[in-house]
Structure formats: C-alpha cells, structure tokens
Design a binder for these strands. Structure first.
Lengths: 225, 225, 225, 225
DNA sequence: AATGAATGAGCGTTCATTCAT
DNA sequence: TATGAATGAACGCTCATTCAT
C-alpha cells in the first residue's frame, strides 16, 4: 500500500439502513449487519492469532468469515482498522469488570481468589486472551491503539487496583510495594498467556493454580507480620 | 500493512572501511566472516525489533549491516533462519547466568536483590531484552525455535530456580508455591519488557525498583512468620 | 494504495555502478541500464498511448518491455513517476529546437514552411506526437508535470516565437495579433495530433499541407497590405 | 493511480426532496425519469471532467446525482454507455448551431466575430466545453462514439463551413486553403479548451480575444488584396 | 566470497456490476 | 422503479530470493 499516514478515528461503518416502515425484512437489517461484521471480526481474530497481524491474509479472513474479500472493506477502512476495531471492541468491556472491584471490601484471602477467578474466566478462557496477546504483541506498531488501551482500559484497571490496594495497605494488610506496582498482580497472567502456544506442549501450565498461588503470595502471605 | 515512515532519507551504506587497493585479505578471512555475520545479526536485531519480523525488510538489514543484500544468503539460509540464529545466539548465553545460581546459598534478602540485578543488567539493559521480546512475540510461528528455547534455555533456568527454591522452601524460607511456579519470579520482568514501547510514554516504569519490590515480596516477605 | 500525496521531485534511479577499475564488463553497465530504462519507457509510451494512463496496466508495460513487473520499480518510483519521466524526457529536447528559431531572420514565406517542416518531422512523425497528446490528455491530473512542461518547454517556445513575431510585426510583416497569441501558430498542429486516431479513418488529414497552408495564411497572407 | 484528494468530506446524498408519504406518483413518471436521467448525466459530466473517465467512480456519480448506485444501471447499460450517452446528448445539438451558418451571407468581418461569439457562448462558456474535451481526450477508446461524433456532428459542421467558405473563396474573399482545411477555423478554440486547466494558472488566456483575432486573421486579413 | 539487478509470487485495496429486497 | 450491500476480478506495489558477474 502506497499508504496514507495512518487514518486516525473510528470505523466508518455502513449506517444500518433503518429497519423499514412496513417490515420488509423478516430478519432486521442491522442484525444481519452485526452478524457479518461480527463474523469478520471473529475470523480476523483467528487469522491474526495464528499468523500474526502482518502475515495474516485478508483473503483467509474473508473465506473464514464466509464473505467476499471486498465485503471486509464495507465494514472496516483497511487491515489496520480491522485490527484496531478487533482490539477495541474486545477489550473495552474489560473496563467494567475491573471497575467493579473498586469498592470491593472483601478479605484479602477471598479477594486473591476472586481476582484469579476473574482473570481465568473473563480473559484466559475467552477470546480476550488472544486479543490481549495480539494487543501486546503488535501494539508497538499501533500507537493509537496502545494509547486507547492504556487510557480506556489499563489506566482504569491500575487505578481501581491501586485504590483497593491502598486501602489494604493502610490497614497493614498488603505491602505498600503493591500500591506502587499493581502490575505485579497480573504479571503471571500475562506470562501464562504467552506460555500457552509457546511452551505448553513441553510443560503445561495450570493457570488457575498459578494465579491463585501468586495472588495468595503477594496479597496474603505478604502482609506485614 | 501500513509500513509507515521508515524508508526516509536514512544512512547510505558506509562501504566497509576500505581495506586497501588490492589487498583483499590483510585481515584473516575468519575474522572478516565472523564480523560480517555479526554485523548482519546486529542489523537484523535492530530491524526486527523496530518493525517486527514480518515487516522487517532484508534490504534494510543489509544496508544497516553495510553489506549487499545477497550477502545475507551467504551466511543464512533465509529470513527465518536469520531470525532463529539471532535468537539462538543471543539467548543461549543466558543459560550460564542462571546455572550459576544453582548452587548459590546466600540469604533470601540478598538473593532477591541479586536476581533483580541480574535481570536488569543482563537482560533489560542489553540487546537481550529485544531478543526476548522477539522470541515471545514471534515464537508461535517458529515452533523449532520455541522448542530450542525451552530445551536449551528455559527448562534449565526453571530447573536451576527450582533447585534453589526447593532448598529454601525446605528451610521454610519461601513458599512452596514458588517451587511449583518459578515463572512467578520473572513474570514482572516480562511485563516490563513489553511495557516499554507500549505504555512507557504514558507511565514510565522503574524496572529495577519493580523487580526488587516484587522479589522482596515473593522471596522475603513471603516467608512463613 | 492508500497512497502518499504525490512524491514531487525527479526519478530516483539506480546509480549505474561505476564502470569498474579493470573492466569486468564488456558492455558498460550503464548502457545496459539505459537500455532497460529506455525499453520500459518505450513500452510505457505504447501502452499509455493506446489505453490511456489510467487504464494502462504495468503488467503489459513490463511484458512489452521484456522485463519483470518488479523491474519497473527499479527505475521508476511508481506509475505516476513513470509517466512523468516519459513526458519530461521526451519533451525536454523540444526546447532546443524552438530556441534555435529565436534568432532566425529568414523571410516569412520561407519561415512558414520551415516551422511547418519542423513540426511535422520533429513532432508529428515521431514518438513526440504521442507524448504531446498524453501530456495534454492527462496533464490535468499531473499538476507538477504541467508546470514543468509550461516552464521548461511551453513558455520558452512561446517566448522564442514572440520574439520572432515581434520583429516581423515591427516591420509590418505579420499581424500584431500573432504576437499576442502565438498559440495560433501551432493550434492546427494540436488539432492534427488529436484528429489522427479519432477521425483519420473517416477523413485523413494531410498534416504537412495543413500546417503549410495555415502558416502561409497567418504569417504570409496576413501581412498588412 | 494516485487518486489524490477527492474522497474528502463531500456532501452526503440529499434524499430526493421527499415525495410525500405514500404518493409515489404525484409527478408524472416520465418527468421523474427524465429528471433522474438528467441528474445522472450532469453528475457524470462533473465527475468525468474532473477525474477523467477511467478514474471517475460511479459511486461519486450516484452520490452527486442523489441516486443509489444501482439506479444508474436502470438508465444506462454500463459506465461506457453512460459516457457515450453523455457525449451524444450534449454534442448533438451543436449540429443545429453550425447548420444555421450554412446559408449565412454576411460580410467576412462580421462573420468572423459571429463565429467567435458562437464558439465562446455556445461551447466555451457552457458544459459543452468539458464534453468536447472529454470526447477528444477519451475518444480513442470509444470508436463507436468517435464515429457517431464524426458522422452526426463533425462532418456536418465541416460541410457547412466548407459551403460557406467556398462561396467566399469563389468571390476571392478568403483563401482557398480554408476550404480545404476548415479545421483551421476552430483549431485555436480546441487549444483554448485544453489550455484551461493545464496552463491557465501560469498564463491566462482571453479566449474571446484569441478567437476574434484568429478569425479576423484567417477570414479577413487573409483575403487577396 | 560478494554484489545488487532482476525476478515474480503474493497481497491489500478498489470499484464496476449484480441482485435480493 | 429504486436501493445499496455484496461480490470478485483486477491491478499497483513489495520484497524474499536468485544468479550472472
């Protein structure tokens, strides 16, 4: 692509053709649209995940989504936009999950297990795992996307975690180091995401156990004596 | 892909320091060979690091290394081979570093700082950081490489750490969980490697402090009271 | 192509590999280069002429030039550049031809025939005819090229003609209107260039006779009584 | 191709002035049809004129005409047909204008100005200018169209002019050369049409003055003494 | 060993055309 | 008649790889 300098902004989607006065369509038009868009996103995730963004072919994405190649361009400006929409759309909902933690006030022991469980069920066992990996893996070449992710997701997660940890630290329940570096909490989760697909075939990793052990260690055992 | 800026003016290839009029071989061939191979590997690391494996152009690698494009093929079978050699050659020496820990028997408090220091000086502040990132980032598409890395490097690191941690656990100094999941020790290091380049511009991360805090937390504070 | 906004400047050609100290090559490298470049330009002219710039396929240009498609890009930045180089290279020499007229001082009757002859032999019967047509036909979409053509060729031609006509007008030999509108001199030549290929099959046009008649008319018969 | 700017914000299609709730046919179908066809032709002229036939997008034509893309195909077989209908419909009326000259018998001096005026007001200052340019520019790829234009328009214009000029030549008022080459009369007009858009920004051209000067020159001054 | 011009398969993107509604 | 989502052939451009020198 002799290419422009990025393209900024959001997706310029087909405006889904108002459902019609007398109900021409049995299936609402915007459901079809959503379906096609979703099919493309799903297919893209699979192709991007297995081949990497650069090596993934839109031909394969289209085939896997069951649409023609040109159809992709009805929903996404270009390959970059498709990638960014995939990441945005998948990771944005994470905000809510973690924001929910903000005002939690359960005991550390239970909280550790709760966070571990959230990670496993809300990320590791879902599509989001692959999207997180893609975000981290390809993010350097999508500065706008990295910024979005930091501003909309990461900084809020960190903020919520900090608030939670600060209160616990004030009560002497956790090390103040965690307030400074909340990244410590999720680090093994990130490692687990990469471990799978690289080394799982040599040495499988029990992610739930790993996360629980880790969180017990830093949240519970780590409390001041 | 967007293949943005790049390409710009960029340094024209500096002919390799004119070896004299006719004298092809004042410098022993072996050294020249090693030099050229090394130059290519160095150039490759820089290009792969900044553009990613797929988007990196061998043209740029050659230019940066000060050799002709064809020369790369005298030293490496193809682009894949160049990548794998880069990772192998750079990460293999890591084995020694960790093996050295195997028989260490210093106090946990000191050991935490020692490992943190090792990570920062031997990986984070060197080229190896970029190679580790590349290994993790692109490793899925190089199963042979992942296998090499696991067998030659990772499993030995893990083995050494386990031995160390097992002894400490036997003395009740660290949680047995660490023996089961030594990945916990280095997880924040991995996160830090990705954090840079993605989010550093929004929120810089003091890697040394992070590693020390983390290791104190899991190795020292974590001991049974 | 998401595409850049034009590219300005001249062609970035292969620097033709200095002919070598001890004469490795029998055929000088830059002759080969010139040949290939010239072959591409010739092929491009034929394809552009018959299909128009937009509809011409670089595949066909390459095939006709006897080179691979990628080879075109060793000599020209892109399709636009190829077109512009074709026009520049072909029309630039026209300057000299007309500049030569500047100091002519032959009688009008002879001058009319001379200019007609110049047009016919130097433009109409050569490749330049097609390039002039392309320049006029496609020039709107190549503002840089139109500017080049105006500055380097047209304004000089007009200047030379004006000087010539002014002197003749001062002597009362030609109408002052020609000094104001030297375009009148060549207008039938432009028409002839388009006539061919459009209407020649219905009504052939004797270009030499047309030009001579026209120039006699405006240069000679037109003189004040 | 470069397909530069274009695309910009641009007017969203203004729904065709809401024809009422259910009333499909307040306006007679014929008129609506004529309107839509005309709107498409007008839009096509603007798009073809500014982008050239090949680079013009039917999407843009539709948007500019305020109809859906598919609607174009209700009125025209395909893009080629649209182009040909545009040229035919616009240029056919020219016949009448020139036929009117056939029996004129005004003095040369007045006739020169009359023809100049006709050209300026009937072609240069109207849409026809653009259509003439398109016809000449793209005509090579539309042999049928060129034939139509020659047979229906050009040959009649030439015939009318010849008749007129023949009578004047018989009376010794104009050069017999003009009878042979009536193209000479309009040549500067063709040049003017191309001059605009190519070189007008560097050197504007007073078309009316040009045409009057030219026609005075060849019709009036040129008469035998 | 070293070069770099040449190759051509491959891919992203466009857009005329179709057709179900 | 009108729509506009969908199609897929087509084309410009890239770049890993080859090979004559």
């Amino acid at each position: 692509m002799a290419r422009q300098g990025k393209r900024g902004g959001a997706a310029r989607l087909r405006k889904p053709a108002a459902i019609g006065q007398r109900g021409r369509a049995i299936v609402p038009v915007d459901v079809v649209t959503r379906d096609k868009r979703a099919a493309i996103l799903t297919a893209a995730l699979e192709e991007f995940s297995s081949a990497g963004f650069a090596a993934a072919r839109l031909d394969d994405v289209a085939r896997r989504a069951g649409v023609a190649k040109g159809t992709i361009y009805l929903y996404f400006r270009d390959k970059d936009d498709l990638f960014q929409e995939l990441v945005r759309g998948t990771l944005a909902p994470l905000i809510g999950i973690v924001e929910g933690l903000r005002d939690t006030d359960i005991p550390m022991r239970a909280l550790a297990d709760h966070i571990a469980e959230l990670f496993v069920t809300q990320i590791y066992m879902t599509n989001r795992k692959n999207v997180v990996r893609l975000m981290i893996t390809e993010g350097r070449r999508f500065p706008k996307l990295a910024e979005f992710y930091y501003r909309e997701v990461l900084s809020r997660m960190i903020g919520a975690l900090r608030a939670l940890l600060q209160r616990a630290a004030d009560r002497g329940e956790v090390s103040p180091a965690l307030v400074q570096f909340p990244q410590i909490l999720v680090a093994p989760g990130i490692v687990a995401i990469f471990w799978e697909g690289l080394f799982d075939r040599f040495e499988p990793l029990d992610v739930r156990a790993l996360m629980k052990a880790h969180l017990q260690l830093v949240l519970v055992s780590g409390r001041a004596p």
